[in-house]
Design a protein around this nucleic acid. Structure first.
Lengths: 330, 330
DNA sequence: CTTTAAGCGTCATATTTTGACGCATTACCT
DNA sequence: AGGTAATGCGTCAAAATATGACGCTTAAAG
């Protein structure tokens, strides 16, 4: 009765990356769970557990134990098929959008998902490998590569509030060394930004993660500027500036565009009205943002902005310029 | 020595949704693991385990055991902080893009992630709740709501290759009942499509998941049309048609646009050349797709397509039409 | 080469696990 | 409603296992 409980606790103390020593387990058991055992006992437990689970010890003297690298996450309750399918889906979705190295930590989970799906899959010949797909409406970019060691280290620094030193390739292609205090991370359109202060300056700046080289953790704690707020910083520096809400009115001419808009509206109060000339008038209250413009422009000549006047003027002006580009004669 | 192993196996047999009975566990232990135990033993094990883990029994006579609803996934090896952070990030990312109900199955995992982060978080006052953010460059839409029961049921049907009956609200707003054979699922820009055949027809069609009502599983197996291939179907019906690769050449005039393109190029062979007039010429081999057009149009008057000629003509024509819309006088 | 700390083998004893059995309780069927 | 079959549960003794004590061996560090 004691041993079972102890075994569970020990099992959960064994990490996947770092190795843990007998004494560390022993003292954690003592302090956290009030379970005082001899070191000999813990040794026996570990040997015992390693026969049931994929644990391994580096055979060295103060021996370190950890889960074998390739062992998949052992989750309980066992992942059910629906969850497994959801995992596959989420992984596919995220994998398309974020740089590779960032997501390696999720691999063990995706692996169990795949195993589980394989288990239930092929009783009949009618089943085929994957039944979910993500179709991206965006142009696929080549997301910059972030080496696993870098992302791992930056995550750790971020979590533990520690600084690190790194070489950084600036925009002008010059490489410089900095003492970096990571404050937060932001993902924008495939790029990974690190919000940080450098050396002992107090104003946060943005680093592109894939431009960081040779990082190494320090023991010093981060330098957080007085009153720093990640969300505010991101809002100011990264989300393209967003204005107040406006009442958008626009004219669409293709029925197929309208169908999609009906299914997933751009605002809660979106209204669509079919006009006599076969066009569709849409009205909605949306933020006056960069995203809005990008989205509207995407429709090209299939949309006409009616109001607000300022936005219409903007589009009218752009239309003229664009026409000027392709038809300079006029 | 036996008991830990058995407990482990039992624990993994206990599901989160459905409840499992003593006898089912017993027979599965016997057949799958060659472990023949008395029913009494399993009962004892379950009582024991329920003191260590959030398990619960419906107090009925052939008692059913399952994990408590709100219990987070119990993972071993314990989720490490880096993984936890990655989970939070992925969840935030996916949560923005996919309809709510679809992702409920992931909640227990996100919950462990959050717990783990909370555990390591607050030794100092310098830590703040979340350190990662996802900034979407797209216009935020209101993704249609898919009730949890529906998505859950459709997933199950899909996985097990079973049909279901459902009422479906067609595009013309009429509601009809169908016998649905689900073949696959596709996620496009916030909308969830179910690829399926209806009744006993053989041609697959697309259903919008949020338009499905009152679905209920059947025991009959799906009707898979001869030679059906999900990827091909999606390519034909959902990915906007993609042409051959073309050699795109375009002119950008804003340096800030170019910076982003340098960081995450649109193709492996992308080249950027600064011209004397301060503009930038970009060349790249990309698929001649709908997505490409959408992307190019997004830049509005900040980009000029040079070649291939066909694409340039298309843009020239669109520019003229657009100008015509806003400046009909000319 | 020494010192120290950790790993490991063994043994006797305390503790726990397990199968057996029988009674109590619940669900189900007619 | 009453009988029946199946399941849950308490108890006990035997078998199996876990544990602390002790001392020898071995690896790492200075």
């Amino acid at each position: 009765m004691d041993s079972l409980y102890r075994h569970w606790l020990i099992l959960r103390m064994i990490p996947r990356r770092r190795a843990v020593g007998v004494n560390e387990i022993r003292s954690r058991l003592a302090t956290e769970f009030n379970l005082d055992k001899q070191a000999r006992m813990i040794q026996r437990d570990l040997v015992f557990l390693s026969r049931l689970f994929p644990l391994e010890s580096d055979g060295r003297k103060p021996s370190g134990w950890k889960w074998k690298e390739e062992s998949s996450a052992y989750d309980i309750p066992n992942m059910d098929p629906v969850t497994a399918l959801t995992f596959k889906l989420a992984a596919e979705y995220v994998g398309k959008m974020l740089p590779r190295g960032i997501l390696t930590a999720l691999r063990p989970y995706v692996r169990i998902a795949e195993e589980r799906l394989r288990q239930i899959a092929p009783p009949n010949l009618l089943s085929w490998p994957d039944k979910v797909r993500v179709v991206s409406p965006n142009l696929t970019r080549v997301p910059p590569h972030v080496p696993e060691e870098i992302s791992e280290m930056v995550y750790t620094a971020l979590l533990e509030g520690r600084r690190f030193t790194a070489r950084y390739i600036r925009m002008d292609e010059e490489e410089k060394s900095y003492d970096v205090s990571p404050l937060g991370m932001a993902f924008v359109d495939g790029l990974t930004y690190l919000v940080a202060t450098l050396n002992d300056y107090d104003d946060p700046i943005l680093l592109l993660l894939h431009r960081v080289r040779e990082a190494s953790l320090l023991e010093t704690t981060v330098n957080v500027p007085e009153g720093f707020d990640l969300d505010r910083y991101i809002a100011e520096e990264l989300s393209f500036p967003v204005g107040w809400d406006i009442k958008l009115k626009a004219l669409f001419c293709e029925r197929s565009d309208i169908l999609r808009l009906r299914e997933s509206p751009i605002a809660e109060d979106q209204r669509i009205r079919e006009l006599k000339n076969g066009k569709f008038e849409i009205t909605a209250t949306v933020a006056d943002s960069f995203q809005l413009r990008w989205w509207l422009r995407g429709y090209g000549e299939r949309v006409e902005v009616l109001s607000p006047k300022k936005l219409r003027d903007e589009f009218a002006m752009a239309a003229r310029k664009l026409s000027e580009i392709y038809h300079p004669s006029q």
